[in-house]
Design a protein around this nucleic acid. Structure first.
Length: 609
DNA sequence: CTAGGGTTAG
């Protein structure tokens, strides 16, 4: 094989960078792409035999030098070309090296854009592919995306596959779906590894729906799933609170003699704990042990926090101490988990004790640990200690973050200090810390609790003005308070706003409005709302019915009260004696004949159920 | 060199 026409040497004689370059034909380009291998081989002594080596090596050193310059010299655009009259700036190999040398993908891309803007430099498809894959390798999904828009070309499928993976890892699920769909259209089938990373990326982005889409496409394209895939599917089931389906899948895999990763087990354990199904949780622990997949620190974390969620302090503690006895050294996360659990249950003495135990072992509390304990102190109303810890956290340099502020704002609101919380909120803006939906919700709830609904509503409007997506909790307390203050119409305006934004109201919100309507005398409307609620298979609480019945009988509308009582019996609540007594008392003052008839009807109805 | 972990609302 002869020495290929080297256009590196051709450019050695070029003095004026503004002189238009010849656009080398693609054959040369391909040749150069092939010679990438030589670069990869450098240093193992082999390439002495290759006649291209000198040239490639030369290009390598130039790329290294250029990389250094664009990294360190602020105004390199003004000097670079004249400094390097011999560099071939449109060679794909050169960019390959720049991307390798220069870890900052953004700078490399800027360099490429700059070259493109120079008259006569026309990077072609091959160079574009190299740049694109450099960006993908650097995991710079956003840059790769903007690059594609800029050069307006579609890379080869084999370059798109890692791109799709990169998009998933960066949570750009919709974009990834687009790429997968394109690959499907051109009949290119991604590898199992790529499908799996799509699944894992979707989980990270909390997109169970995307998991199912990717999985469906994967099966359709004939790729056979592996154990990792199964693990991701189990996680997706857990994420959707479909724990039984996940469990079912696990059992099937176990029957086939396979054991999924601990991650899948841990997620199932978390889900079972969340539903209070501790026997199933311990069942899973035993399965893990039996299958030689020992529960790890993550597993125990799930177990402990799961137990604490249900107020099972002693069990949580027992497991934690057990762990220590068996030689597991709890780390900062583990300590934070148990401290959090104890704080939730308001066991601040124990939480504090563990805090000191942790510090004594040389583990320094971080933002998570601090926020957890601050939350705990607020929970028991110890504002002094909470504020002291907050100050300490700021002093030791945990920056003023949104979560830190949220912890304080929420804690203050919880303790009736909405105004003080609002001061912090203003401070956030001054110090350029952005608030999020939790900040706003905490404040809305704080002001509602103090009866200051106007401020609450303003906060809601501000949240919307900022373009943030409100949540159910943004509305719940506002609607409840408006109803209590006989401003049901305003409450319904908010309700409609929720509907338009696709936010599912809390069950309690339905009830607030029904009670509000009935209390203000809009009986028919209240009944309408109740039947809508029942039709959507939502079950009002018994207290709501009792409240309605009481309210109506107090207004001497006993017939309507009876109507709600029969509703209540109809959906299976046993009415309690107090309500009967109340009604009977009321009715006795009325026409006694009709009383008997009505009571008779109700008790018949109750027996029939 | 990997999976997966802990804080703030409801």
């Amino acid at each position: 094989m002869g020495r290929p026409p080297s256009f590196f040497t051709n450019f050695c004689i070029r003095q004026n960078p503004k002189t238009p370059l010849q656009n080398p034909n693609s054959q040369i380009r391909k040749r150069n792409l092939c010679s990438n291998n030589n670069i990869n081989n450098r240093g193992n002594g082999e390439f002495k035999q290759n006649p291209d080596v000198k040239v490639v090596q030369d290009q390598f050193f130039k790329a290294k030098e250029v990389s250094r310059i664009i990294r360190t010299r602020p105004r390199w655009e003004q000097t670079l070309l004249s400094d390097f009259p011999t560099v071939n700036f449109v060679d794909p190999c050169f960019y390959n090296e720049v991307f390798k040398q220069q870890k900052n993908a953004f700078l490399s891309l800027r360099f490429y854009y700059w070259i493109s803007s120079q008259e006569g430099f026309l990077p072609d498809r091959f160079t574009s592919n190299v740049i694109f894959s450099g960006l993908v390798k650097a995991k710079a999904a956003k840059l790769a995306q903007s690059f594609l828009e800029f050069v307006n070309f579609m890379p080869e499928p084999s370059y798109l596959e890692p791109y799709a993976e990169c998009l998933c890892e960066n949570g750009l699920i919709e974009e990834a779906i687009g790429v997968f769909d394109y690959l499907k259209r051109v009949h290119y089938c991604p590898s199992l590894k790529t499908w799996n990373s799509a699944l894992s990326g979707s989980l990270k982005a909390e997109r169970a729906d995307a998991v199912w889409k990717f999985y469906g496409d994967m099966i359709e394209s004939g790729v056979v799933a592996d154990l990792d895939t199964t693990g991701y599917l189990i996680q997706a089931f857990c994420m959707e609170n479909n724990v039984w389906k996940g469990y079912e899948l696990l059992r099937r895999v176990l029957e086939d003699g396979h054991v999924p990763s601990n991650v899948a087990f841990n997620k199932l354990i978390r889900a079972f704990c969340k539903n209070g199904n501790y026997s199933r949780m311990s069942d899973l622990l035993h399965t893990m042990i039996a299958k030689n997949h020992s529960p790890d620190i993550f597993t125990y974390q799930e177990v402990i926090s799961g137990l604490c969620k249900r107020n099972m302090k002693h069990e949580g503690f027992r497991i934690f101490n057990d762990l220590k006895d068996r030689g597991y050294a709890p780390d900062r996360v583990m300590y934070t988990t148990i401290i959090h659990g104890l704080c939730k249950m308001k066991w601040l003495g124990d939480a504090r004790r563990l805090w000191f135990e942790m510090v004594q072992k040389g583990i320094i509390p971080n933002q998570y640990t601090y926020n957890t304990l601050i939350y705990g102190y607020f929970k028991i109303g110890n504002l002094m200690e909470a504020e002291r810890l907050y100050k300490e956290m700021c002093d030791i340099g945990y920056g003023e973050t949104t979560v830190n502020y949220n912890t304080m704002i929420n804690g203050l609101c919880l303790n009736g200090k909405a105004e003080a919380a609002y001061e912090l909120f203003k401070q956030m803006a001054e110090r350029n810390v952005v608030g999020d939906v939790i900040t706003y919700n905490s404040l809305i709830q704080g002001f509602c609790k103090k009866g200051n609904i106007a401020v609450g509503i303003n906060l809601l409007y501000e949240l919307l003005k900022q373009g943030m997506q409100p949540s159910t909790a943004s509305y719940t307390l506002l609607i409840e308070k408006l109803c209590k203050m006989r401003q049901v119409d305003e409450a319904i305006v908010l309700w409609k706003d929720m509907q338009e934004r696709g936010i599912v109201p809390a069950i309690w919100t339905h009830e607030s409005i029904i009670v509000g309507l009935v209390e203000q005398g809009s009986l028919a409307e209240g009944i309408d709302w109740l039947s809508v609620m029942l039709k959507s298979r939502l079950r009002p609480r018994k207290e709501t019915f009792e409240r309605l019945i009481q309210c109506l009988s107090e207004a001497d509308k006993w017939a309507d009260a009876l109507c709600f009582l029969s509703y209540m019996l109809k959906i299976g609540y046993a009415s309690n004696e107090c309500i009967y007594l109340l009604l009977v008392n009321k009715l006795c003052k009325d026409n006694s004949n009709r009383v008997e008839i009505c009571i008779g009807k109700i008790t018949e109805g109750a027996k029939a159920l």
